[in-house]
Structure formats: structure tokens, C-alpha cells
Amino acid sequence: MADEALLQPATVVAVRDLTPTVRSLEILPADGILPFTPGSHIAVQVCINGRPDRRHYSLLGRPEDGCYRIAVRRMPHSRGGSIFMWDLREGDALAVSAPRNAFPLKGGGSAYLLIAGGIGITPIHAMAMALADAEAPFRLLYGVRSRSDAPFGDALATRLGNRLELVVEEEGGLIDMAAAFAPLPDNGEAYVCGPMGMLEAALAGWRAAGRPAERLRFETFGNSGHRAAQPFIVRVPDLGREIRVEANQTMLDALDAAGVEVLSDCRRGECGLCNVDVVACEGELDHRDVFLSEGQKAEGRQLCACVSRVAGGSVTIRTGYRPL
């Protein structure tokens, strides 16, 4: 859904480093917080190259904490959001939306499997705590690069005990989706938040297990791909345009800045409104959306401009525009 939520003035009341690359921020709106449930996020107004934009962050903790708590990873190829957030200090003013939940936890379920990768732990953390409080049966698989880069790793281990399984990539760990899903009862749900590779493995494993699609819940903010973000060229022959997309810019923003009209709504690779036809491609398409099916992605004839990219080279596209 297009983010039209009203923004409220707020203050950063605490800043704390969780790991060398992950920092938590506590934010207190002037009018107090609104209630929220696990999986909720807020929009934060950021300023990038002097222009306002919005970024979405999952809420940690619970309303009783009396503030909104988020965690932000410093991204090496940030489009500007994480740099803005990392520049915030205690006492700084900012603007945030009311909480919204597009990743709600089912109440009263018989079994839950939570899977997090890296900073994807943020919504899963709130879910794990809520399920632990409710004494619901669940497991959390948490994939991290190294033990020193596992935000909340120690706190989760203390609270969850053997319900937490930390999978450390540096130590050769890899989440085996088939094995993870096997013990889950038929009516159990899995919740996934992590990088694109992890999500795709989960989607493929879930389908292979013959489980219904709606019981695999996931959230992606469309900010990770199979390849590092690089600049590339997009050509629009119908409009006679050739546009450079910077590494820290989305194709949709580059098209928009160049005056090429493309519809969009969610801007996180879910709704498919910004989907354009691929006429030709030099370089590898890096699909970062969850709108196109695996088959459609393999065909390589469509691209969701809000999140997806080309890894080096160029792409020739057709928008909905048909010259008179």
C-alpha cells in the first residue's frame, strides 16, 4: 500500500550499538506511542540528498516499553536511509508514522516456526518474545554471518533456551529448509524475514513440501538481492531515453527523475504495479521482488522497477506507454 500515513513529531531518546553494524534507536512521539502488535513497523521520514523520503523499520519489544524501538543496520551500499539513521543522536527530532502491521502473527496457532536472517531478526524478535510470553510452541532459526554480528543473539539465547538455533555462516552453517519444515504440523505457520536468498530457499522448500502458500508468512522491504547493487543503464526506446541508474538509486526513482512515467504503489516489490516488460538485457537480471513467480523470473521478460536491478550492463524496457 502506498505510504500515505500521517507523520508525527518525535524524539530520539536513546541510541545504542548492538553490534559494530547494528544500532538500536528508541523513539518517543510527542503525543505518546500507539498500541502495536508483533510484526508491526513504523515509517520514519529520512532526508536523502536534501529530499525527504521514507524508510520502514520493524518495531522491537512491546507497547509496555513506552517507546518505539527499532534496529538499523549500516548498509555499505545505502541509498541514504541507513546513513541518515546512523547520524541520529539522542535528543534529535524526527517524524514517524503510526504503527502498521503487514506481517501479523496468527493468534492461538498450534505451532510456529520463525526464521530470521541478519537484520531480518527485527520483526521476528518481537514475535519470538510474544510467543515465549504466551507459552506457545515455536522454534526460531536465526542465520547470521558471525557470532559477533548477531543482534539480540545473547538476549534471545537467554530467553528462548533451546528453542533458538543460531546458524552461523562463518562456521559453515546453512539453514536446511526441508529439515526445518518437516516437524511442523500441517496447520503450522512459518514466518520468514531475511535476505532474498533465504526467502527464496524458504519459498521453494515450502512449495516442495506441498504446504499451502498462505501459511508461509514473510516480509521483505525489497532491499536485498542476489548481487551487490551496481550502476546500470536502462533504455526506453519508445520514449527515446537512456538513463543511468546509480548504485544507491532504484530503477523506479531513476525513471521517475527522468520523467518516464511508471505506476507504483508498495515500492517494496509486492504489488506488481511498477512491473515493466524487458525487451533485451545485457547483464544479469537481479529480481528482488516477490510479485513475479519463480517461472516468470526465469523467463526474464518482466522486471519490478521499484526493487529489481541489473547486475552490470544495461536493460532495454517497455513501459505501458505506446507512442501515437
Binding site: T220, E270, S293, G295
Partner: peptide, 9 residues
């Protein structure tokens, strides 16, 4: 469409 929008609930 071939997929389900994950936010749809």
C-alpha cells in the same frame, strides 16, 4: 497474478 501479495490479510 501467479503469486500472493505477502501483506494481504
Amino acid at each position: 497474478q501467479e503469486t500472493l501479495n505477502p501483506s494481504a490479510c
